[in-house]
Each structure stands twice: as C-alpha cells, then as structure tokens.
C-alpha cells in the first residue's frame, strides 16, 4: 500500500538525507584541506579535496543539488575556518567551477578527470579574478599561469580519486 503522497514524502526524505550527507562530507573535506599545509604560499592555491565530493554530487544528485551542497559547504566552512573575507573568493571560485563542470558534464564527451581538471582551473581563475577586482589591480594577473598549472594538477588528482570512488560507490546512492 503505497499512496502517491507517501512516495513523495519518502523521496523528499531521501533527497534531504543525501544532500545532508554530501554536505557533511564536503565540510569534512574542507576541514582536512584547512589542516593541510600548502607547499606554495600563494593565495588561491589549494588541492581542492572538497571538489571531490562536489563532483560525486554532480554525478549522483544532479546539478541543482550539487550546486546547493557546494554553496552550503562554502558558507559554513567560510564561517568556521577561512573567515568571511575568504568566503567571497570561495564563492566566486565555487560557482564558476561548478557551472563549468556541469557544462562539460552535459556534453558527455569528458571523463571525470577532464571535468575535474576544468573545475580546478575554473576555481582558481574565479578566485584570481575576484581578488583582482577587489584590489582593483592587474598586478595579480601575473599569478595566472601558475594558478592554471596548479589547477590542472590538483584537478587531475581529485578527478582520478573521484573516478575511483564513483566506481566503488553503491549504485543505489543517487537521486
């Protein structure tokens, strides 16, 4: 006996549960990232481990919820770890990166590694552009090449990890 109303409630509960789990996971990864010392003392250079969760969310939950998970993660991790000022950069990087990743995902010709790579680069560029705008200076643009390369490297790393996790993740975890 399953009425349509009951099914709808179940689905809503499932959606909420998965979104919460992914958000919590992304937050933990943000924290891990916060703890890890970065070898290159440059603003904006990160490994982007949290991006791993976001890519998985994109594949399993779809763009709408992946976007929400990412925004909530940035908001909370900004309040907890990086401070309100750093949050601004994270939002710029996060929004640009997930939109780019979604576009590449929709084309269906890229693997997770390519998508993650583009996301990493987009994240860095978004942050750099925000910083340049805030400082109203073009001096920061000299960091552009190194941010592109660190984005590529970290993107390939997280993309590879996401791919391995995606393969092992039970297929029923999806919306």
């Amino acid at each position: 006996m399953s009425s349509p109303v009951r099914n709808q409630n179940l689905n809503q509960g499932k959606t909420l549960a998965y979104c919460s789990i992914f958000t919590a996971l992304a937050l933990i990864f943000s924290y891990v990232e916060f703890l890890l010392p970065i070898p290159i003392p440059l603003p904006g250079v990160k490994i982007g481990v949290a991006n791993l969760v976001i890519i998985l969310a994109l594949y399993r939950l779809g763009f709408k919820y992946a976007f929400t998970v990412n925004m909530v993660r940035i908001l909370i991790s900004g309040l907890l770890f990086s401070g309100v000022f750093g949050m601004l950069y994270s939002f710029a990087g996060g929004i640009l990166s997930i939109v780019i990743m979604y576009i590449l995902y929709r084309t269906k010709i890229f693997s997770m590694i390519g998508i993650s790579m583009a996301g990493g680069v987009a994240h860095n560029i978004g942050q750099l552009l925000t910083a340049s705008a805030l400082l109203s200076s073009t001096a920061l643009l000299s960091y552009f090449p190194i941010l592109v390369f660190t984005g590529i490297i970290s993107g390939i790393l997280t993309g590879f990890l996401s791919y391995e996790i995606e393969r092992r993740l039970p297929s029923h975890i999806k919306l």
Partner: peptide
C-alpha cells in the same frame, strides 16, 4: 576512463598556461 576530449582539454589548458 580517460577520453580523447580530456587529452584535448589538457593540451588546451597547458597551452593557455
């Protein structure tokens, strides 16, 4: 798991860099 488009994207990004 790595597709042609990935390699192409990698080359493009490296060129941009």
């Amino acid at each position: 798991m790595i597709k042609k488009a990935d390699i192409f994207l990698l080359i493009v990004l490296i060129l941009i860099g």
